[in-house]
Design a protein around this nucleic acid. Structure first.
Length: 203
DNA sequence: AGAGTGATCATG
DNA sequence: ATGATCACTCTC
């Protein structure tokens, strides 16, 4: 039953490769014995020390970003803007601090529980299907992902992992990453990937 | 287009 | 200690 779980070899590759390979895969979050599942439809690659948009730019190593310095296959969850969490998967080898940001998902299972988690920000009856996973902080809220899951090993965890899957006939688009305007020449590099024309992509 | 929000980090 | 920043979201 676990044969589709992505293993360490999947994650220990170039983040640009992993970012594209993750499109269509299933993100699984188990909470209180219930499985919440979303299909990944949008990602961004962060290329490490040289990447001026990455948290590890210039070799920065802090308490927050420590997970990015570990081996590929861990979760890197960070907190920002005083209220939002975002989920990354760590890629490559230890001391190669690269990662892929999960930017959007299509809710697949446990949708009512996701709505519960998202209610409060938006009144429950105003929540549309695309309000559950069409952004990195929205999907973390829907899946109840916070810093407690930072450093979680996605290859062995019973709370959070990713399974191989595909969307037959999907087309991949790419473009500049969102929200990294400060990153100078790195701001415009096409390191954001998404499934073309998919409803649940952000923006 | 602007506000909200507080952990995080570089500075000193 | 302090101040600036922020891989975002919501509402206007």
């Amino acid at each position: 039953m676990d044969d589709k779980r992505l293993d360490a070899d999947f994650y220990r590759r170039d983040p640009m490769v992993v970012a594209q390979a993750l499109l269509g895969c299933r993100l699984v979050r188990v909470i209180d014995g219930q499985s919440l599942i979303g299909r990944i439809v949008e990602t961004e690659a962060y290329l490490g020390i040289a990447d001026k948009a990455a948290h590890t730019c210039g070799g920065r190593r802090t308490a927050r970003n420590q997970s990015m310095w570990e081996a590929g296959g861990l979760a890197y969850v960070y907190f920002t803007y005083g209220m939002h969490h975002c989920l990354n998967v760590v890629t490559q080898q230890p001391e190669e601090p690269t990662a892929v940001l999960i930017r959007a998902m299509e809710p697949i299972a446990g949708v009512e529980r996701m709505r519960d988690h998202r209610s409060g920000k938006i009144a429950r009856d105003r929540l549309r299907a695309t309000d559950l996973g069409s952004g990195p902080a929205k999907l973390c809220q829907a899946l109840a992902i916070d810093r407690e899951l930072d450093g979680e090993d996605l290859t062995t965890s019973d709370q959070l992992w990713i399974e191989a899957d595909d969307l037959p006939g999907k087309r991949i688009s790419r473009g500049p990453r969102i929200g990294v305007g400060y990153a100078e020449e790195w701001a415009l590099k096409p390191l954001r990937y998404w499934i073309r024309d998919h409803r649940h992509v952000s923006r």
